[in-house]
């Protein structure tokens, strides 16, 4: 579903449906608390390297990043609950975004709407976020067990041979994040 709604206020937090309505992303301010529901794609180091190569060579990507959200995560394998049921996914918290900075401007140029990760972004990424009117959301690092409970479906869509680094399409439900860089390039994190 394209489009979406932002419900709530800065105090209680907003709820946003993914893929996000660009007009709603533009309303978000750095430090806003947001609950995300809908589709995200996972990608971290190895997948980014492959996507960047494919973009450079003008090849078809495993998913069209235009208007979508990428979550920087490499989950643990989906094990069994204490009751013996197969989980949707294992522990699934954010990885450090800064390692992906080198690949990010090209993805934003290709239309990527937002990213979810942890930690600070470099100046080139913040500039690209401003240029392409995107948003960088932060989730709390080291809360993979909690965040896994906010993921209601998971399917590998590319690079299964990369194991935890494969690209998954996830459906999230009230996934808690904070706006760490808004579309004006305002940055929540302190910079050295």
């Amino acid at each position: 579903m394209m489009g979406g709604v932002a419900v709530g206020s800065p105090a209680t937090g907003f709820k946003i449906i993914l893929p996000p309505d660009p007009a709603i992303l533009k309303q978000l301010k750095v430090g806003d608390k947001v609950l995300l529901s809908g589709t995200v794609y996972t990608a971290r180091d190895a997948a980014h390297k492959r996507i960047a190569g494919a973009l450079e060579r003008g090849e078809v990507l495993p998913f069209d990043p235009c208007g979508q959200v990428i979550y920087y995560v490499g989950p643990t394998p989906a094990g069994l609950t204490p009751g013996g049921h197969r989980r949707v996914i294992g522990s699934a918290g954010p990885t450090t975004s800064g390692r992906l900075d080198v690949y990010t401007p090209a993805l934003l140029q290709a239309g990527l709407a937002a990213m979810i990760g942890k930690g600070q972004r470099g100046p080139e990424v913040i500039e690209a976020i401003r240029t392409y009117q995107a948003v960088y959301f932060a989730a709390v690092g080291g809360t993979g067990a909690l965040l896994s409970q906010k993921i209601i479906s998971a399917e590998v869509v590319a690079y299964p041979e990369l194991g935890p680094e494969a690209i998954y399409q996830l459906t999230v439900d009230d996934f808690p994040v904070v706006v760490a860089v808004d579309c004006l390039g305002n940055d929540l994190t302190l910079r050295p």
Partner: peptide
């Protein structure tokens, strides 16, 4: 949650 569900505290094990 990690303790109760026997899930890794963090995905980076």
């Amino acid at each position: 949650i990690a303790r109760r569900e026997r899930l890794p505290i963090c995905q980076d094990t």
